[in-house]
Amino acid sequence: MQANAFSFASRLRTLRENRRLSKTALAKQVGVSTTCVWNWEEGNTEPRSENLAALGKVLNAPVSYLQNGSEWDGASSKAMRPHEGVTLAEVIADAKIRIALLAGISPEKVNVSLEY
């Protein structure tokens, strides 16, 4: 089953990739098999509520955003609190998500460049 740009599968994949986690790394942190993550990202299955909560925690995203793409400004995200030792990559990943939400497009279509 192919996931569209705004499906649970697509949101999960985008968040995982933006946080530079492999499917295996995400699976370990959530406490499921890599096959589970693969099936979620392919749109074959969706996680049970306890796994959905764990995904939200690991990916620093609200469960409501994961489930149905509800509006999320990223303000609760770990990367929005730089005093907690986050990386520039995490801040950029969260910025891409926020921009995509405001523009009504998929985060994969957002490109961010920096000028020092």
Score class of each variant (00 low, 15 high):
residue 62 P to G: 11
residue 30 V to M: 07
residue 58 V to P: 05
residue 12 L to I: 02
residue 110 V to K: 06
residue 79 A to S: 14
residue 103 A to G: 05
residue 113 S to Y: 09
residue 101 L to P: 00
residue 74 G to T: 13
residue 74 G to W: 15
residue 101 L to F: 01
residue 13 R to C: 03
residue 54 A to P: 13
residue 31 G to Q: 04
residue 52 L to G: 07
residue 39 N to C: 04
residue 89 A to K: 04
residue 74 G to P: 11
residue 112 V to Q: 07
residue 97 I to T: 10
residue 30 V to G: 05
residue 64 S to N: 08
residue 35 T to Y: 04
residue 111 N to Q: 08
residue 59 L to Y: 10
residue 60 N to F: 05
residue 17 E to D: 03
residue 39 N to V: 01
residue 98 R to D: 01
residue 30 V to R: 04
residue 77 S to E: 15
residue 98 R to Y: 04
residue 101 L to K: 14
residue 94 D to M: 06
residue 87 T to Y: 11
residue 14 T to F: 03
residue 36 C to N: 14
residue 1 M to Q: 08
residue 6 F to L: 06
residue 18 N to T: 03
residue 106 S to Q: 06
residue 102 L to V: 12
residue 50 E to C: 05
residue 90 E to Q: 10
residue 49 S to M: 13
residue 21 L to Q: 02
residue 72 W to H: 09
residue 8 F to K: 01
residue 43 G to T: 14
residue 34 T to V: 08
residue 57 K to P: 08
residue 42 E to C: 09
residue 16 R to C: 01
residue 56 G to M: 14
residue 38 W to Q: 12
residue 9 A to M: 02
residue 107 P to M: 05
residue 69 G to K: 10
residue 4 N to A: 02
residue 35 T to E: 11
residue 59 L to T: 09
residue 56 G to N: 12
residue 73 D to W: 11
residue 42 E to P: 00
residue 23 K to P: 01
residue 115 E to P: 00
residue 52 L to E: 10
residue 18 N to W: 02
residue 6 F to S: 07
residue 79 A to V: 13
residue 9 A to F: 07
residue 7 S to H: 01
residue 84 E to C: 00
residue 67 Q to Y: 01
residue 2 Q to R: 08
residue 83 H to W: 14
residue 47 P to S: 01
residue 57 K to N: 14
residue 66 L to V: 12
residue 27 A to L: 04
residue 3 A to T: 07
residue 55 L to H: 03
residue 1 M to W: 03
residue 67 Q to R: 15
residue 51 N to E: 12
residue 13 R to S: 08
residue 51 N to W: 11
residue 94 D to F: 00
residue 87 T to A: 10
residue 50 E to D: 15
residue 72 W to M: 06
residue 42 E to T: 15
residue 98 R to K: 07
residue 36 C to R: 03
residue 37 V to P: 08
residue 9 A to W: 05
residue 35 T to L: 02
residue 86 V to M: 02
residue 58 V to R: 03
residue 15 L to C: 05
residue 68 N to M: 08
residue 23 K to R: 15
residue 47 P to Y: 09
